[in-house]
Design a protein around this nucleic acid. Structure first.
Lengths: 197, 197
DNA sequence: AACTATACGGAGGGCTCCTCCGGTTATGCA
DNA sequence: TGCATAACCGGAGGAGCCCTCCGTATAGTT
């Protein structure tokens, strides 16, 4: 239920808006890919994904010429959704709660990333820009929510966005850590970041 | 030139020593696999490896039932060679030089590991024991060389083996770091560890 | 030297990624 | 609205790769 987005492939400049069915199918394909990758991991096949999206393999390959492009598309959506969280609650919610919510989203994102990490690593290998672009996007988002909390006086001013990423990112990268463990650890980090009255 | 080792698969207990040609072919296969994986990365095929070892694919599959088993074998050899370095220079060489040499070997090992990291991650995924066993082996070796240097009074006594691993391991995991950069960083770490007179 | 257990080799099966092209559908214009 | 055409859909099939099977060759033993 993410609305009808008339997005188009990043390659061609907007000569024409994508046809309605094409953009709908593209969205369904990414959604299906996320679902199948999460369920079957590395052994997910493109036929499976096409079937889950109610689409032929030909259509799939029109949108995503190589299997790895699907992985990339899913990952890009995940990253965009994560950084989107940082923009939404601009003035509506509490600054501290905004930080808490965003870090929680980050932990969930990192956890989800681990379910198809082998595929993702291959994507990074094939397209190094993907890694640096995503890292920058996320760093900017982290900076936004952190600075907002600091400006409101609820977060310690001597914590940098890099510190935050290092702390939380490293935490999530550790093997055999469950979502619950990471969320528990996150509360410790948050206690450490909160401004002392 | 590693000598004729009459090793056998880890699975079956020693009912009989491996036949000479079999053990020779096994060694050649691992050697060929290392070479081909290093050269072609993820796109290395088993046919290529068999040809490089002057052996048929049937023979390859007798020794390594699945492609991933080859990756595992190469990795195990690399780890064993690394921890071997820690034992060789027991009383022959200087304790400090022993530590330096071993850490240098470690950096080289980590660098080599990155050339086929996608494959390796899959191997860890399939066989989690491989990761923990290797980590323990390496940790023990690190402890050995470190303690020896500390007993000789040339390394600070307040540095733990875990600190060492965290420091050097984390350093090597960073993306786009060259062997030279890491070796430079290693000199800083060594300066920090050396006992102050 | 003969015998037997063990290993070798490579043709072929099955699966997966990806391509190609005839049929179908959406969009712009009269 | 109705038509022309450009864009899109679908699935059969090619190519390549992992892995199996079984007849042949060889090392080790008596």
């Amino acid at each position: 239920m993410s609305g009808v987005t008339t997005e188009q492939t990043a390659a061609d400049p907007a000569l024409r808006p994508m046809r309605a069915d094409a953009s709908r199918n593209r969205a369904r394909l990414v959604e299906a890919a996320r679902s199948v990758f999460t369920a079957r991991g590395s052994s997910a096949t493109v036929e499976e994904i096409a079937k889950a999206a109610d689409v032929g393999v030909g259509t799939l390959y029109r949108h995503f010429p190589r299997r790895i492009d699907l992985v990339e598309a899913v990952y890009r959506e995940d990253v965009d959704e994560l950084v989107g969280h940082a923009r939404e609650d601009d003035a509506t919610t509490d600054a501290w709660q905004g930080l808490v919510d965003w870090l929680d989203a980050f932990v969930r994102y990192a956890q989800a990333k681990r379910t198809f990490l082998t595929e993702l690593h291959e994507a990074f290998e094939k397209n190094p820009d993907l890694a640096v672009e995503s890292r920058e996007k996320i760093a900017r988002a982290a900076g936004t929510v952190l600075r907002r909390a600091q400006d409101a006086g609820v977060a310690r001013p001597d914590v940098g966005q890099e510190d935050l990423m290092q702390l939380v990112g490293g935490m999530c990268m550790a093997r055999n850590a469950t979502l619950e463990q990471n969320q528990r650890l996150l509360t410790f980090v948050l206690d450490g970041i909160r401004a002392q009255p």
